[in-house]
Design a protein around this nucleic acid. Sequence first.
DNA 1: CTTAATCCTACCAATGCGGTAGGAGAAACC
DNA 2: GGTTTCTCCTACCGCATTGGTAGGATTAAG
Lengths: 164, 164
Amino acid sequence: MIFTTKAEYGVRLLVELGRQANDAPVSLKAIAENEGLPLAYLERIVALLKRADLVESTRGAHGGYRLARDPESVTMDEVVLALEGSVAPMSCFVDETDDGRVLCSHVDDGEACATKFLWLRVQGGVTEALRRTTLAELVAFSAKQDVAQSAETLGSALPLHSAA
Amino acid sequence: MIFTTKAEYGVRLLVELGRQANDAPVSLKAIAENEGLPLAYLERIVALLKRADLVESTRGAHGGYRLARDPESVTMDEVVLALEGSVAPMSCFVDETDDGRVLCSHVDDGEACATKFLWLRVQGGVTEALRRTTLAELVAFSAKQDVAQSAETLGSALPLHSAA
DNA sequence: CTTAATCCTACCAATGCGGTAGGAGAAACC
DNA sequence: GGTTTCTCCTACCGCATTGGTAGGATTAAG
């Protein structure tokens, strides 16, 4: 498994916030009910997003969370970094270098890892895929799915659950 | 963490076998000592590789393992699939479809996952990186490292404890 | 001052991972 | 034929992490 539910729930949370057109804060309780996720667990997850300045919060009644930045500018690699810590292909990749880029620890014990070469490629593939996906894109996707689904459940003749 | 030590050790094992020029089988004990890995654990790992027809074994004294195929033709996505089961970005990706391609389980409970869209991209990035890396490439890389290292530690230009 | 929300921290069960132990078969070599 | 050296197989175990809960403090609206 590459990611844990932290990433899953955290991204969903952000998408949910992104769907909100106005800038009124959304309570975690609403999101938890909407997505069917445990509230107490979401609280800990949203804390990670806040620490990374991806969401803002207002406390007290009628409070909640809203996106701190334009969804277009939020790329998934920052999001996943905030949620999962870092994307390390292998346990020997200790997270040293500032922003998620990690390097192998046993560089030269005996023979230099041929595996390191491989894992670096994999890591590149993952971070590239994450970086080229923005929150806005996911929000748009989710909105499209909504349309498709309501059409399908209503029995109309509109495009089905395909992407286009 | 994307991969466990199964992938790490398994790939190393294959590289070690690939370094062997002749077709004489190599014992796990030799590999374990060479790489500093626990023998009993390697036994379980190599069983996965054998089940996937990536290595052949001969039992008894002077027995051991050898590659079952040309290293050029062995891509890392088969290897990792054999070792790790499947590369699933998220726990909701249950491995159904034959060869490692996995799909999301909660396709349409409430709203169709925008996250699924993301994880599929990530999975694509990983498998693509794995598929374009062959065992032969890793073996060559490891050999190159040997030369560089022996030159550096000995100051001479002779091969060190390499296969030949 | 009650209510609804964010915050914070400690706790807990289950799972999986890395590793060990102890053998049982199979082939080479004396 | 027996010993040695391997592959094979299965059960076990400590440990860390994950996913989730509990309980409460703080803050602000009404």
